[in-house]
């Protein structure tokens, strides 16, 4: 068993989590908790796959996925920003809505066959670096490289640009931001839209690159929820989000691949097509998420940092308090 191959595939599957996690991170930084990630990812995966079948062009598929998921996210935005309703309940209903819509529109899509996928390529020179070149820069989907770019860009945007400062302000102290002339409502709508588009991109990454196809709700298999967990682990920081997402991606691959070989490090592989241990292996990502949540939450308590202060609260102009 070659671990570099597993890690290489793990980076690809981690890219799915990366997009979804970054999207949720933007939304939460703006003060809007969106629990509908799973639903938006399903919408994205279904839209990307069906659009690509219809048009033959995967890029149109990606674009459509991002737009449709972004559009769905605006339902949540309207309910929690304009109508000031409960973010948890609205996010949950978005999951139902997204799942339902994608299952209805995706009916029969699983038998649609193969589509033209997004291109895979290696980066010249960088691929020559031992181990790292093989894992990160050899024969990866173009979306993986987009993911690499997105992490530092997001970090820079949030921490070192003016709009990023505004983003943090509307999530931490919206009334102060409002007093400074930042349109809290409009900006929140925008970042929820960004979150939706990135969740859609995450879905498209599954159905057009990582594990091509449409397998109804198994397409995402709870990754949207893991992404929301990773945001907490990441302490709302894009760099940590990337670390978490890739680590989880690698874990997912490892669990799949460890059941293959007869020998493991020279010994008989206990996981070799062992259905009983297989179930426990499949449990691991979720168990790990719980562990990661415990670590993240403890760290947040210790360092007295945590969620954006206004996360989960509607902003009401002129109301006292936050």
């Amino acid at each position: 068993m070659d671990f570099t191959i597993i890690l290489q595939a793990g980076i690809a599957s981690g890219t799915v989590l990366l997009f979804a996690t970054l999207g949720e991170l933007f939304s939460e930084r703006a003060g809007v908790l969106n629990l509908g990630v799973e639903g938006m990812m399903l919408i994205g995966a279904m839209t990307a796959f069906s659009t690509t079948i219809a048009t033959g062009n995967p890029w149109i598929g990606v674009l459509a996925a991002m737009l449709f998921a972004g559009l769905i996210s605006q339902i949540h935005a309207f309910i929690v920003i304009t109508l000031q309703a409960d973010q948890v309940v609205s996010g949950l209903s978005l999951t139902f809505l997204g799942t339902g819509i994608s299952l209805v529109l995706g009916e029969g899509l699983s038998k649609a066959g193969t589509v033209s996928l997004l291109p895979n390529f290696s980066i010249p020179l960088l691929t020559l670096i031992p181990i790292i070149g093989k894992i990160f820069f050899t024969d990866q989907s173009i979306l993986v490289y987009i993911g690499y770019l997105l992490v530092p860009l997001s970090w820079y945007y949030i921490n070192h640009t003016r709009p990023g400062l505004h983003l943090r302000a509307i999530g931490e102290y919206p009334s102060a931001a409002d007093a400074l002339g930042i349109s809290v409502f409009r900006q929140r709508y925008f970042y929820v839209f960004v979150g939706g588009m990135l969740a859609g991109l995450a879905g498209a990454t599954i159905s057009l690159a990582v594990s091509p196809g449409w397998f109804s709700e198994l397409t995402t298999g709870g990754q949207g929820w893991i992404a929301i967990g990773l945001v907490i682990f990441a302490q709302w920081d894009p760099i940590r989000a990337a670390v978490g997402a890739y680590a989880f991606g690698a874990l997912r691959r490892l669990i799949l691949d460890i059941q293959g070989p007869v020998l493991l490090l020279g010994f008989a592989n206990p996981f070799y097509y062992n259905p009983y241990l297989g179930f426990f292996l499949q449990m691991l990502p979720y168990l790990f998420t719980v562990v990661v949540l415990v670590i993240g939450s403890r760290e947040a308590m210790r360092k007295r940092i945590g969620a954006p202060a206004a996360l989960g609260n509607p902003y009401v102009r002129g109301e006292r308090g936050k």
Binding site: I75, I79, A85, S90, T95, L97, G100, L103
Partner: peptide, 20 residues
């Protein structure tokens, strides 16, 4: 597809929270 009802359930909640 009966999954339409999943979407409808989501919509019902959407409207219930909105009506709040």
């Amino acid at each position: 597809p009966s999954a339409l009802i999943t979407a409808l359930n989501g919509l019902v909640v959407v409207f219930v929270v909105s009506s709040e």
